[in-house]
Design a protein around this nucleic acid. Structure first.
Length: 251
DNA sequence: GTTGAGCGTT
C-alpha cells in the first residue's frame, strides 16, 4: 500500500496531472506506481473511490513533477495493457478544485481564496455539509451522468435515490403538523415507537418460529410417523391397543 | 461476485 492519498494532496505546486482511464476496478495505486514511476518522478497517485462502497471508479490520477516526463508517460503508457485492460493515459483537463489546467499543469491554484469581497457569510459554515452533498450530487448531474452510462451507476443511483428519499422523509417529519402543534409527547411517542419497532423487529421473527414448530401440529406428524410403525406389527396385526409383548406370553 | 463513460482526495 502506498501512502498516496492518505492525507489529501501533498503538494500540487508545479505538478502535472495525468488522467488514467479504462483501468480495471481492481487496479490500485500500487499497481500504477511502478509503471509510471519508471518514466519519471511521480509525486502523487490518486484513484477516486466510491463514497459508500469504497470501490475504485475505474480511473486514476497520476501527478508528475515534470511535464516532459508526464508527456513521455502518456506516450509510452497510453494503450498499455494493465490488469488485462488497455489503459488510456492523457493529460488532465480539470484540476482538483476545477482550476485551470494546461496540459496537466495547474495554472491557477486556490492559494488564498478566503475573502473575495465581504466576509459576511456566517451561514456558510452551517451550510458546509449541505453544500458538500449538494455539490457532490450536482456534480454528477451537471456532467450528464443522468444519461445511460452503465449498470453499475444505475445501481448506485438507486441507492442514492433511496437515501435521498429517506432524508426527505426525515425532514418531512420535522415539519409534521403534530410537531407544530406543540405536542412534545408526540415526539417521544414517535421515538418510543421507533425503538419499540426495533425491539419488535426480532419479535415477529421469533413469532414465525412457532408456526413452523406448531406444538399441536408437530404431534400430528410424529403421531402419524410412529403410528404405522407401532400400530402394525410384523405379522400385520395391530398391537397398539394390545399387550406390548403378546409373543413371549404365548410362548 | 457484477459494470466500463469519464476528470479528483477530510
Amino acid at each position: 500500500m502506498s501512502h498516496f492519498g492518505r492525507s489529501g494532496p501533498p503538494d500540487i505546486t508545479d505538478t502535472y496531472s495525468l488522467l488514467i482511464l479504462n483501468i480495471s476496478f481492481r487496479t490500485t495505486a500500487d499497481d500504477l506506481f511502478p509503471l509510471f514511476d519508471k518514466y519519471g518522478k511521480v509525486v502523487d497517485i490518486f484513484i477516486p473511490k466510491d463514497r459508500r462502497t469504497g470501490d475504485s471508479r475505474g480511473f486514476a490520477f497520476v501527478r508528475y513533477k515534470y511535464s516532459d516526463e508526464a508527456q513521455k508517460a502518456v506516450d509510452r503508457l497510453d494503450g498499455r495493457e494493465v490488469d488485462g485492460r488497455e489503459i488510456t493515459v492523457q493529460f488532465a483537463k480539470y484540476g482538483p478544485n476545477a482550476e485551470r489546467i494546461d496540459r496537466g499543469r495547474i495554472i491557477e491554484k486556490s492559494h488564498s481564496p478566503r475573502v473575495r469581497g465581504r466576509s459576511r457569510s456566517p451561514r456558510r459554515s452551517s451550510r458546509y455539509r449541505d453544500d458538500y452533498r449538494d455539490t457532490y450530487r450536482g456534480d454528477y448531474r451537471d456532467r450528464g451522468y443522468r444519461r445511460s452510462r452503465s449498470r453499475s451507476r444505475d445501481r448506485y443511483d438507486r441507492y442514492r435515490g433511496r437515501d435521498r428519499g429517506h432524508r426527505y422523509r426525515s425532514r418531512s417529519r420535522s415539519y409534521s403538523p403534530d410537531y407544530d402543534r406543540g405536542r412534545g409527547r408526540s415526539r417521544y411517542d414517535d421515538e418510543r415507537w421507533s425503538r419499540s419497532r426495533s425491539i419488535e423487529s426480532p419479535g415477529p421473527r421469533r413469532s414465525l418460529s412457532p408456526p413452523l414448530t406448531t406444538p399441536t401440529r408437530d404431534k400430528s406428524p410424529a403421531s402419524r410417523s410412529a403410528s404405522p410403525k407401532r400400530s402394525l406389527s410384523p405379522n400385520g396385526r395391530p398391537l397398539d391397543s394390545r399387550s406390548p409383548s403378546p409373543g413371549p406370553a404365548e410362548e
